[in-house]
């Protein structure tokens, strides 16, 4: 039996893909299965990074044959591949790309799909087990994926302790035929602070009265850029005329629900909170240990934002530079 993982790259192999490999490799070990991987947009310089992670076979498609963005192009190929391999499980990172692709693939394979899973396990009798959050994570369901094949998408996790001593993957090339695409990519709009709408942003960095002046946003803007975040503000900052009202988060501003909200120099009154109470993880950076925001943030750093924020940006840049 085989497990097939779908890898994603955005410039480089994503963290999510690495964590899918790690989880699948572990499962493959337990279930004594072969681990196959497809990498739609491979970076040939980086192929060596896949060595030892537990992948047995790596499927590559001749460059330019299937545009990586196009689900329309990839779905028939992947369906056929999964069928030919008779894969027991198909796993992908729970990214926008991975989730949409798996949903379509699942329909073609008439298989079940569990999205956004937190963990993947394998029973002794060879059945995949996943833990899937329901109700926005308020409830967890442990699912036993009896039917073959099954599909899962996995949320990224730490890859510490991942397999390193596996084989060097055998590479299989494919040259699928492609019928003309009906759905075409007109443009790719990259994230940049200006372009991300607050209400759609997955990450928001927000500043308040602690910013201290209209010219002090640089530190926050740089952090935004590296995180692909949108810039938010408290009403105090808007009121003072330091930033446009469109950035205001709160009761009388925008209601946002990013996965991550970083509040810098914001005291966190209820009127501000009203706009961001649906945020996933809340990080607060504030000088005053008694600030209300520390009552409901997940991570709080007491200190000067002008010290901490540039430090964060710097370290993140360094990490990105290394190509994590």
């Amino acid at each position: 039996m085989k497990i097939l993982v779908l890898l994603e790259s955005r410039g480089e192999l994503t963290l999510g893909s690495l964590s899918v490999i790690a989880a699948a490799a572990q499962a493959a070990d337990r279930g004594h299965m072969e681990l196959h991987a497809v990498w739609p947009e491979p970076d040939h310089e980086q192929l060596h990074r896949l060595a030892g992670l537990g992948i047995n076979v790596l499927h590559l498609v001749r460059e330019d044959l299937l545009p990586p963005y196009s689900q329309e192009a990839w779905i028939p190929f992947l369906t056929e591949l999964a069928q030919n391999l008779d894969a027991r499980l198909i796993a992908a990172p729970a990214s926008a790309w991975g989730k949409a692709l798996c949903a379509a693939l699942a329909a073609r394979l008439d298989a079940e799909l569990a999205q956004d899973c937190l963990s993947l396990d394998w029973t002794l009798d060879g059945t995949p087990l996943v833990r899937k959050p329901l109700y926005a994570g308020k409830i967890l369901a442990d699912l036993r994926l009896d039917h073959s094949p099954a599909l899962v998408t996995l949320r990224p996790r730490s890859v510490k302790g991942a397999k390193r001593d596996g084989p060097i993957p055998r590479i299989v090339g494919h040259e699928p035929s492609l019928s003309p695409l009906r759905c075409v990519l007109k443009e790719l709009v990259p994230l940049s602070t200006g372009a991300v709408k607050l209400t759609e942003a997955r990450v928001i960095v927000a500043g308040g009265r602690g910013i201290g002046g209209p010219d002090n946003w640089t530190a926050l803007r740089e952090l935004c850029d590296i995180l692909g975040a949108a810039l938010g503000a408290s009403r105090a900052a808007v009121d003072a005329g330091w930033i446009h009202q469109g950035h205001q988060v709160g009761q009388t501003g925008k209601t946002v629900s990013p996965d991550l909200y970083i509040a810098c120099g914001i005291s966190g009154t209820i009127q501000h909170r009203a706009g961001m109470s649906n945020a996933g993880t809340v990080v607060a950076i504030n000088r005053d240990p008694g600030a209300e925001i520390f009552q409901y943030c997940d991570y709080g750093l007491v200190g000067d934002l002008f010290e901490i924020v540039p430090k964060l940006t710097l370290e993140l840049k360094a990490l990105r530079g290394q190509g994590s």
């Binding site: 075409v184 007109k186 443009e187």
Partner: peptide, 10 residues
């Protein structure tokens, strides 16, 4: 998607 937006026409 994570890096921005794909503008698709179909």
């Amino acid at each position: 998607f994570e890096e921005g937006q794909l503008v698709l026409e179909m």
